[in-house]
Design a protein around this nucleic acid. Sequence first.
DNA 1: CCAGTATCTGTAAACGTTTTCAGCCGCTGT
DNA 2: ACAGCGGCTGAAAACGTTTACAGATACTGG
Lengths: 360, 360
Amino acid sequence: MSDGGPPTVVSIAERAGVSIASVSRVLNGVGARPETVRRVERAAAELGYVPNAVAQSLKGGRTKQLTFAMQDIGNPVYVAMVRQIQAVTRAAGYRLLLHSTDAVIEDELAVVRSLGDRTSDGLILCPIRITPEHVEVLTAAAGPVVVIGSLPRGVPVDAVQADSVLGARLAVTHLVESGRRRIAFVNGPLDTVPGHNRRQGYLKALAEGGIVPDPELERATSFGLGAGREALHDLLDAGAAPDAVFCANDQLALGAAQAAHERGLRIPEEMAVVGMDDSDLARACWPPLSSVDLGSEERGRAAARMLLERLSDTPDERPGPGPEAPRAGAARRVTTAPRLVVRASSAPSAPATTARGGAR
Amino acid sequence: MSDGGPPTVVSIAERAGVSIASVSRVLNGVGARPETVRRVERAAAELGYVPNAVAQSLKGGRTKQLTFAMQDIGNPVYVAMVRQIQAVTRAAGYRLLLHSTDAVIEDELAVVRSLGDRTSDGLILCPIRITPEHVEVLTAAAGPVVVIGSLPRGVPVDAVQADSVLGARLAVTHLVESGRRRIAFVNGPLDTVPGHNRRQGYLKALAEGGIVPDPELERATSFGLGAGREALHDLLDAGAAPDAVFCANDQLALGAAQAAHERGLRIPEEMAVVGMDDSDLARACWPPLSSVDLGSEERGRAAARMLLERLSDTPDERPGPGPEAPRAGAARRVTTAPRLVVRASSAPSAPATTARGGAR
DNA sequence: CCAGTATCTGTAAACGTTTTCAGCCGCTGT
DNA sequence: ACAGCGGCTGAAAACGTTTACAGATACTGG
């Protein structure tokens, strides 16, 4: 008598005339007498039994779920990451929980803290900024975390980062070497890590090229398409007269390209455009957009792999006595190498080629 | 004595000197003596207690998780849907589980069946094809499902669909009315529901416009960017000489636009291009792409809302005796209205080549 | 002053699974 | 024939929570 819901091991046990222990053993492939196996499997099939994953999680202490948290899935970079992460984690039998933080700091922190509710076994986090609170919360995280982005040295958390300083430098150097002199820079917010780093690379490349930076050529607002369009219009209205524009991501770059088109400027002849992230957008537009591949896919894969490693390294937790016993291994830091992909939007004259950036 | 892991109600009970029942009651805001409340809350705070969501799920019978399954998150349409779904479900306190099926039928079916493992409380599914097996599995689903896409009449499952026949018709009629006569059609696979329906709309619009369909003008391969590019090149190579091309989605359209550019054809003067889905891509490219908004966002929202409704309507399941008691309410079908968005890529008279064509 | 009651508290069961432990059986070796 | 042993099996505990129930306490009204 147990039709009060979906079939359970108890239902099967009753129908097969064995104990629930035997049912569990058969279902998990542990040894049993052929006769028992037969009866249990038959009963399970007849009842259409599906094991209750929640109960399994409770018993086993792991949910086979991972969380990926980023600010907005609308950004192609995160889409690329999700795809890779999904592929890697799925192969390992994990489900993927998606969490958009909308770049709200409080929300990012809450995600990390929510590791404590045991809903997922681990977390991949893409913070847009790193506050002292981040460091604090990350250090005290209840489970393994891998951060995609830059993290201060002391924080005992794995991280996968792009060398966006070098990436920006590659892009701008490319423009300089193509003979461009008035290279504008359309950036996102300066108080974000990417915003700051990309600017460093921009300035460095200008210096190396012997070009004096002109503050009139810089714009920094947000990371969206509309922002790029407005920024370039604004630059042109202000008479900054750039002959090239480097944008801190592809969305900004497409916005800038639109503005250029609207002004009747030919790309790349009158205005070269280079973006960053080498997202699908770069290949989809016209002319195809030169862009710096910061390895979004690679970072996604790497982060997922690191997380899985942590998970297999941690059969039980906190062997040490102190409440702050150091984590199993030292925090790992991986940096992916940027790669400039030259396409028509910045072609000096020749067809598209690619140049490699150095590893770090 | 219980430092063998994260704090639990037991730890708190010990520290506060009360029973676990009282702890639970205080934590859930049920009545208790002020003194008890104080002590429990203090202990919980000191221990940094976070309730174990898995245990709560097991007890409560619901996980507060929902699953969204589509073929590939790389498609902007699904990104738009995820965003909306995420927003709606999050507001209701649900987490979102993402599942890419890669358009593998077996995988789609597995997702539906996996509702039985109680990992998530409900499912939103975007099937690319509907097989008899789909119907069977969906009918027997262990929890509420909402399908985004077309579903045969008899299937007792909620569905949100786009009227893509009408959508395609709008696009093609628009081209006809703009004076185009040789309107090519670049489609995805014909044996998919969208592929089939869009073709119906295309043919219908041609008929209404008094144009005899020319099989030479049709191409159907896959739904990707590269496919669009190749298709148009192929059409031109074959001497089909179209003066417009309607594409079954924006990615195909951008591919076709690339091909046109590569051939030196001016858009829209020599070749009008219209896409479908009105994804971010349509706004990001140049010239901006005319496209039919099939309401991806709206469908995402609607699906999420319907699912949540089902969940609140179903306090306990299967009240009836029979194993196939009909579901609570009849299956609901919602259809969103398509909307043609005309942009420069199909502008009848050509304002967009020089000077500021678009809105500023 | 006592019965009655309202409030709070603790014990124990339940959710569905895995797993330890001890018991049972039939076998083998001597 | 019997001790020993191997493989199977079932009872029971455990994971961490919520909750029905009953016991305890203090307070009210007569």
